[in-house]
Structures are given as structure tokens and as C-alpha cells.
Design a protein around this nucleic acid. Structure first.
Lengths: 229, 229
DNA sequence: CTGACCTTGTGATAACGCTCACAAAGTCCG
DNA sequence: CGGACTTTGTGAGCGTTATCACAAGGTCAG
């Protein structure tokens, strides 16, 4: 039956492929390097070499023993595996601070994500232009998704609106959603939702930071005890 | 020696605590609910009930069998465990699109992360005010970190600058860094770095989106084959 | 006070991901 | 052409995370 994926690629590997991709682009564009060893790629990507090799082995045997990987060829294979040989049309819903920043973010278009439409419900911003695109009313979502073949939706609304927006996206046929709103959205399992939560990240940092300070405090107390003895 | 953590809390659990925290806040503030079962909390947080119970059990036995968890008490325990009983002073480095959005983002201050200083190297923005704070030169970083007891640094610079900024932060004594620049930064292991990469997230979505379309295409081909038989 | 009922807390087990270590396969120099 | 050297690809083992299933502990009505 045509080409089933030889082995299913683990999710952890998929999450690292974009990192390798970026490292390879640096090598190719910056230094024009032709070959790269798993060791070198590992350093650039901030992981260890064995992991790089195992990850790449899921894509196939694209390396040459004794030499390493051909940068251009590997670039192509990862690009293909990630589905980045084509451009993806993206819509952003919510044109607040974050939505605006995302709409103007160069990194997206550079990587083939074309922001095709912006939506909001606030009459004050509807009709205005952000990053060269008009802001449309959320009610137009389904129509625009169809017309522009939007396949990825980015939610940048306040948390209360996120669930409804997510449902509207799903209803319009969008199967991939990136959610920046700090709330969990529930959707049928055929829709892939990824969540980016800025506060959550800081809270995790807080946990480790606190641990550092707790240790420092304990050590300080210890030192004093020692001195008093 | 005082209170060592009874059991070390798994990192996967730490990463979920902020999600539970948010769900509990919704319950407390929104509906004024007093008790919550692992089942209900699981639904709100988008995980399964057993995982909730196991996660919470690392914090201690704070539930009541037959009843559930006391919302306020659990809120307090998670807040304490995450080190959120105190405010954390934060600096943002890089005042481009993203830096500005972060500087104005309400979600940070709401959760006790106080943005105390902004830095850049572009003379055009230095001295200007963003979100009520003056933008200072990166060279003042160390001084300000000391004066304001900055404990968390947020990197929102272009990728080429990220490594140097990270090193300067580490040199100034910052042990927790949130990196939005799309590049890996290498620092000594006593510095905790978390990375948020917007393009990476879209690329992961692309992978799954592509898979969907590949399946749809295969099914379509199949259908035609079947019809032609 | 008793028994039906509910929900937690946790061992046991399965799935997953990471790392190690080394054979296999190639290069390259003399 | 042969042997030293390099680096991949991967099986095996280990640690972490997720899930299951149920005894233990508690509520609550009568």
C-alpha cells in the first residue's frame, strides 16, 4: 500500500527535528559546510550524539559511516518529513498584544508558514491593518478558512474565548491548532492542539529557582551552626 | 536537616502543577467551589484522573477519601511548592515585537512575575518607555540585576544575540532563563534554561497535518482503485 | 452504629525514551 | 591494496513516565 512509514517516528523525535533543521540551516547557510557528524550536530542542537543518530535513523539511513551526514541531503529529508516542502496557510485569532507580535513575527514566514488572515471580535480593531493584513470579524472565519485553505489556526485570545474559538476552528475544518491562551481547550481527537503557555514556563522556572534558594539558605544556616560550635 | 522534600517531585509532574493551579483558580474564583475530585480536576486540566492523583500525592496527602481535595488548601500547597508565595523580579532582554508584547503581557504580573527592567542594544529604543518601563542599555544589565535582585531573565532577542545575552545573564548571577530566541543556548548546568520556540511548534503541527493529508490522499487513491475494480 | 457508597493513595505493570557500547561499513593514507 | 581510523546504525539495558486496579479510609443516610 504505497509507502507506509517504515517505522512510526516517536513524538519525542518529531519535537527535535525542527531543532536539527535549524542547526543544519546554520551550517549550510552560514559556513557552507557539506558534511556534519552526529557529534557536531548534537553540540549545535544541545543534545547528545547517540540521540541524534537514533532520531535520524527513524528517517532512514542517510549517513555515511566514517564521514557523517550530507548537510543538504539531510536538510531535505527532515524538511520533507516535517511536511515543510509546502507552505501552510495560517490564521491568527485574537489581535491583542500577542496576536500583533505573532502577526509581525518574521520567523513564521521564513519557515513557510503564511499568515493569511487575522480575526477578532472587537469592533475597534476590525477593519484595521496589522502586519499588512486586514483584521476580520470572527464570524467570517469559516468562509475564510475555506477560501484560503487555512490549515493551521493560532489562538491568541483571552482565555475565556479560547474554547469557543477552538470549536469554531474545528468546525471550519482546521485540524491543527496552536493555543497561546492560558487555558486547556477540549476538542475531538482528530484535531491536534499544541499549547504554548508563557506563565507556565515562568512558573516552572520559579520551582527550580526556589529550590536553588532553599539550598542556599540551608547551606547558610549550616555554616552558622558550624561557626557557633 | 530541616525539611528535605519527602520524595523528589518528577519533572513531568512539576510541568503539570501550573496547569492544575490555573484550573483550581478557575474553580475558586469563578464558581467558589470548595471541593474538587481528581476526576473533575483531570477534566479541567486535560489529563486523566490517575495522573492527577499521583501528581498530587508527591506534594503530600492533601485529599480526603470519599470527598476529594479542598480547593483552597490545594491551591496553597501548589503555590508553595512552585515557589509562588513570593514575587519574582524579571528582566526582559530584547524589545522587538515579541519583547514588547511580553512586557505588556498581563498574565505575568497576575502570577507574581514582576517585570522590573527592559534591555536592548539599539540606540533607537534605549531611553524610550515600553509598558511603563524605560529601556536600558544591555551594558547596564549586571548593575540592574544586582540592584533589583533580578532572578529570572527572558531572552527575546534575535537568535544571533541570544548566546551572548545568556552568558551575560549568567555572569550577572541569573540562574533561571526563559529563551524565546530560536536558537539553543549553552550555559553551565547550574543555570536552568527553558526554551519557547514558536516556529518549532508550528513545524511540529506541520508534521501531524501532513500525516493527516497523506492518509486522506491514500484513502482517496484507495477509493478510486476500489471503484475501478 | 452499620452498611452502602465514594474517592483517594499507591503498589504493580506497561509503555516510552535515553544512553551505552560496539559491530558494521565506510574513508583515507602510505 | 591493506590496515588504521572514523563514524554510523542499532540491540540491550536502564531510568522515567503513564496507566491500571484495588485496598484503605473516609462520608453519609437511616
Amino acid at each position: 500500500m504505497a509507502s507506509m512509514p517504515s517505522r512510526p517516528i516517536p513524538e519525542a523525535t518529531v519535537a527535535r527535528l525542527p531543532v536539527y533543521l535549524r542547526s543544519l540551516l546554520d551550517l549550510a547557510e552560514g559556513r557552507g559546510q557539506l558534511n556534519v557528524s552526529s557529534e557536531e550536530l548534537a553540540n549545535l542542537a544541545g543534545v547528545n550524539a547517540a540521540k541524534v543518530r537514533k532520531d535520524l535513523s527513524y528517517l532512514g539511513s542517510y549517513g555515511t559511516r566514517g564521514v557523517g551526514y550530507d548537510v543538504e541531503y539531510l536538510l531535505y529529508q527532515i524538511t520533507r518529513e516535517l511536511g515543510l516542502t509546502q507552505d501552510w496557510p495560517v490564521a491568527i485569532i485574537g489581535v491583542g498584544n500577542l496576536g500583533r507580535a505573532l502577526a509581525s513575527y518574521k520567523g513564521f514566514s521564513e519557515r513557510g508558514f503564511r499568515i493569511m488572515a487575522l480575526f477578532d471580535v472587537d469592533e475597534k480593531v476590525i477593519g484595521s491593518t496589522v502586519g499588512g493584513l486586514p483584521v476580520r470579524h470572527l464570524d467570517d472565519l469559516k468562509e475564510v478558512v475555506n477560501d484560503e485553505s487555512i490549515s493551521i489556526g493560532v489562538i491568541a485570545t483571552p482565555p475565556v474565548a479560547a474554547q469557543e474559538v477552538a470549536e469554531r476552528l474545528a468546525d471550519a475544518g482546521v485540524k491543527s491548532i496552536l493555543n497561546f491562551a492560558p487555558t486547556v481547550v477540549n476538542l475531538p481527537p482528530d484535531v491536534t492542539v499544541r499549547k504554548v503557555d508563557l506563565s507556565t514556563e515562568l512558573q516552572i522556572l520559579s520551582f527550580f529557582q526556589q529550590r536553588i534558594q532553599a539550598i542556599a539558605t540551608a547551606r547558610e544556616a549550616n555554616r552558622r551552626l558550624g561557626a557557633g560550635r
